[in-house]
Structure formats: structure tokens, C-alpha cells
């Protein structure tokens, strides 16, 4: 008999494995990205189940919310030749299988506990919030490095803009203010012409 907790775990794990598989097998790259989003989301659910709610939230906010949306943009804008990308699938299969087997072996070594003797981490007491704990460390003890990191990011933004912003004359862009201010007589010239005589 499995508990409710286990049921949730197996359900979401199954969804995650299936969506991960679909991600690499579907033909349409946009569908693949959407499957990847589903994979991330279910992984976030599993993290929340483990009590790591902060990691779960961050995964949804950063990866699903920001990174994958960017990914979708890129995928939609690039013209990807799917047939060519699928060509290598069989050729690279042996290498992929070897990598997968090595990973499986490593996981078995760690998880079976002969070498590392893992004990499950102690469950935190009720009402414990690791978001709060992280914030406590980040905004008190380490507030100084935190602020400096903010300045590092600011410099990165300034540098990126300073190095890439070019004012190119002659580009075609809309200026709504100009568009609104325009009047008919600026654009339209009414020419009076005598009617043609029927010959």
C-alpha cells in the first residue's frame, strides 16, 4: 500500500519522465520546448514535495518564466531544419547510451549506499521555511557581498548597452508621436486635372 505522498511522487515522476522523453522525440521544436517546460514544472513540484520550496519556486520563476520563454523566442525566430537535426540520432545513439549507462552506474554507487552511506536528511520542524532561512542569511550576514553583486550586475548592463547600442540612421522604425501628428495635407496632394475629352 502506498501513501499519498508516494502516490504524488510517482505520478509526477512519471509525467516528468514521459515529458522528458517526448521533448527529445517530437518533431516540432516548439512542442519540444513546451515539453521541456512541463519537465521543469514537474521537477519543481518534486522539489516542493521534498520541502525545498524556495528551489521549486525559483525553478518555476526563472527557468519556466524567463529562460524558456527566451528559448521559445529563439526557436520560433530561427528556421531550424528538423530533418537535418534528426539525421544524427541513430549515429550518436551508441555514445548517448554509454553516457546514460555511466550516469546510471554513478547514481547506483551513490544511492545504494555501500560507499557513501547516505541517510535521508532530517525532516525540518513544522513551520520551517527555507525561503526565510535563506533570506535571513542573504540579507543580514551577507548583505555586503549581496550589494556588491548588485553593482556587478549593474556594470554588466551598462557595459552591454554601451558596447552594443548603435544609433543607425535610416533604419525603418515607427514613431507613434510623428504618426499621430501627421495631417492629411502633409501626405496627400490633391491635383486638379481637367477631365479628359472623349475623342
Amino acid at each position: 500500500m502506498i501513501t499519498f505522498n508516494q502516490f504524488v511522487f510517482y505520478l509526477f515522476s512519471a509525467i516528468m519522465v514521459i515529458s522528458a522523453l517526448r521533448m527529445i522525440t517530437v518533431r516540432n521544436p516548439v512542442h519540444a520546448v513546451l515539453h521541456l517546460v512541463l519537465t521543469f514544472f514537474t521537477a519543481a513540484v518534486l522539489w516542493v514535495q521534498l520541502g525545498a520550496e524556495f528551489l521549486g519556486i525559483v525553478l518555476v520563476l526563472v527557468y519556466v518564466g524567463a529562460v524558456m520563454v527566451l528559448f521559445l523566442f529563439v526557436v520560433m525566430m530561427l528556421d531550424i531544419n528538423i530533418a537535418r537535426m534528426r539525421e544524427g540520432f541513430v549515429r550518436f545513439l551508441p555514445v548517448g547510451l554509454v553516457v546514460a549507462l555511466i550516469m546510471l552506474g554513478e547514481m547506483l554507487v551513490v544511492l545504494t549506499g555501500r560507499v557513501f552511506r547516505l541517510a535521508p536528511p532530517p525532516m525540518p520542524p513544522a513551520g520551517y521555511s527555507n525561503t526565510e532561512a535563506l533570506a535571513g542569511v542573504l540579507y543580514t550576514g551577507y548583505v555586503y557581498p549581496f550589494e556588491i553583486a548588485a553593482f556587478v550586475l549593474l556594470v554588466a548592463i551598462i557595459a552591454a548597452i554601451a558596447l552594443t547600442l548603435r544609433r543607425r540612421p535610416g533604419t525603418l522604425h515607427q514613431d507613434p508621436a510623428e504618426q499621430i501628428r501627421v495631417r492629411a495635407r502633409d501626405r496627400l496632394r490633391i491635383v486638379k486635372m481637367d477631365a479628359e475629352k472623349r475623342s
Partner: peptide, 12 residues
């Protein structure tokens, strides 16, 4: 972090 703040600015 101080080193990175300095270096990043200098690269740019």
C-alpha cells in the same frame, strides 16, 4: 566580488 567589479568595468 571586488575583483570582478573592477575587471568587468576595465574589460568594457
Amino acid at each position: 566580488l571586488g575583483l570582478e567589479l573592477m575587471s568587468l568595468s576595465l574589460y568594457a
